[in-house]
Design a protein around this nucleic acid. Structure first.
Lengths: 336, 336
DNA sequence: AAATATTACGATAACGTTTTCGTAGAAAAC
DNA sequence: GTTTTCTACGAAAACGTTATCGTAATATTT
């Protein structure tokens, strides 16, 4: 019971292949009774058009790629969910590629996508990406690209982000108002748009509230979880220990908790902690973690919506279309 | 600078299309100098073979589908990561489909996959699936299927699971040994293999240790998070309150924490809690959550490995090949 | 009644690969 | 020197769709 195609349907119905094809696509060129005959037999024989033949002929695959640094992470998982939801609605298929925060993997994925396998790409940049030619080449091949969260400002493409600068500012301000005198900032790869902006928000808030900026309070966490843990532990064990920590990503906030536990520091008494995070368990941690929560699901949906709008040429949007969805500060006991 | 194909390469090189094609696939029929010329020009012109033409001709897409109920969930996210890792190694592409725990969505996805879009499918069943014809039809179409975690025992296909029965037993046993007299079990859709087996482990442990089995201690959590929360709260607020809770999935353990918080119950003093979970923050919760952690990443890798073995016809495995990876009990303060 | 338009369909050429088959020319065998 | 075997390539037919073009048979207009 295998592989029924147009030719077989046509023979069975005493019609030509082209007529059957058109009937199935509900063309006005085909009479209603003929269409009905075709529909009925197609259903009866469980005809499924070969997507590869169709894609080859139409130069459209109804497939998009999602390229992200990591999936075992609430933010990206939710974003995927948002993207998949919209894709499903639109009848598109979603290929997923994980770069593991590795710039060279991102490059090889992008190179691969030049084959025309997908109609469009939704991407969040990996941590270690230096040059971005691989992405520009996608654009040159007329493969629409939409960034989300970790965008690349030097490339003209729609971008879906949160208000990272403001969030960085608000986060720092919140720690200051909670009484912190020396606030550390844990950041990831500084090549990333988000790191940059969150950091700027941090420094501007320090400035605004006359708090000193200290180099030693900036910890670049670009290694493995273990390496980052050690860096954070060292920071907390130093005699210049911060009394507030602003973690720019979820995992770093988690490591702060582990480090405090190991060092016997009590949050928030000894050090107040705040982190970007979409942890569902934030409120259940000991103590509950104050977070900046990004609208990950909505960001995914928005990115997908923009991409499909481009693919279906519905609206023409400016090449540097930018959607900014606000993140929200959720105050909990780790900063009381 | 768009779309270079074999024909253009051939013309440029004064060769035939077939020669170029063979040269690129490193065929022994082509002389070394010719191959070199072809390779050089292909690289120079950045030739990327059209995957759809290739798939159409070869009847192989080098693409697999991953069908899962949910992604915003540590278990499934890690499994995806495992699958993607192996797929990348093998040069395969990964399509992702989320069924949102909805049987009818799973059916429509499966129906769609009959088109031959993918060479194989890795699937974890959705909660509400009743009949499984859509999956049998995949098999009939010669599309290999591998199950993981939530398997379907009535279908002959390789399965990658954890030792759910033993884990259910061990979990319950652990609660009993911790002094619990009345242990509740929170379960999801009882149509699922995992629910069934974990439940059996639970009841057998009760039997083994002469604890009474009570219907009211089984709570079927098949609704939304909110609905489940209410059910759990009711359970904990009843005068027949359990002193131990075994949650069969992560989210339910989280809801138990929320319910306890709302009711002012203290874990583990008033009620001990244990849950299946891959939460990275389990040890940071208040109190730290005792978990049964599944080797999600390894399960994903294993499922993918099995699928590719079938696709590449390397080894012939029995149709009901079953890999059981052990989950591990991680005792923390919620059951002390 | 002739000319024109419309309806409903068929033949066929793409799309870009891979593969089967065939064959010049060189090398080897006799 | 003739036959046979390789070697290295080309022509062409697939794969299953969709799109272009053409055309019988009606229907409509003049």
């Amino acid at each position: 019971m295998n592989k029924v195609n147009l030719k077989q349907l046509a023979k069975e119905l005493n019609l030509s292949v082209s007529t059957v094809s058109r009937a199935l696509r509900d063309s006005w060129e085909i009479s209603t009774p003929t269409k009905q005959r075709v529909f009925d037999l197609a259903k009866k024989m469980n005809f499924q058009p070969n997507p590869y033949a169709s894609s080859l002929r139409k130069h459209r695959s109804r497939t998009i790629a999602v390229v992200i640094p990591e999936v075992a992470n609430n933010f990206f998982a939710l974003a995927i969910k948002g993207i998949e939801t919209i894709a499903r609605e639109k009848g598109y298929h979603v290929l997923i590629y994980l770069t593991n925060e590795d710039g060279s993997e991102e490059m090889s994925v992008a190179a691969n996508l030049q084959s025309g396998r997908v109609d469009g790409v939704i991407l969040s940049m990996s941590g270690e990406t230096g040059d971005v030619r691989h992405l520009m080449e996608l654009q040159q091949r007329n493969i629409p690209l939409v960034f989300f969260d970790r965008v690349c400002d030097s490339i003209e493409a729609p971008k879906v982000v949160t208000n990272d600068y403001e969030s960085g500012f608000v986060a720092t301000e919140h720690l200051i108002k909670a009484g912190c005198q020396r606030i550390a900032h844990l950041t990831i790869s500084m090549g990333l748009s988000i790191s940059h902006k969150r950091m700027k928000g941090y420094t501007d808030a320090l400035l605004r509230y006359d708090k000193p900026y200290e180099d030693t309070m900036i910890v670049h966490c670009e290694g493995s979880d273990e390496e980052n843990f050690l860096k954070i532990r060292d920071l907390l064990a130093s005699d210049q220990r911060p009394d507030g920590i602003f973690a720019s990503v979820e995992m770093l906030a988690v490591q702060v908790y582990h480090a405090c536990r190991e060092l016997g520091l009590e949050i928030p008494r000894d050090v107040k902690v705040l982190g970007f995070s979409n942890l569902v368990t934030a409120s259940l941690l000991s103590p509950a973690l104050t977070t900046i929560a990004q609208p990950a699901y909505e960001m995914g949906k928005e990115a997908a919506t923009i991409l499909f709008r481009r693919l279906e040429k519905k609206y023409i949007l400016t090449p540097d279309h930018r959607v900014i969805l606000p993140a929200r500060l959720e105050v909990r006991s780790s900063t009381l």
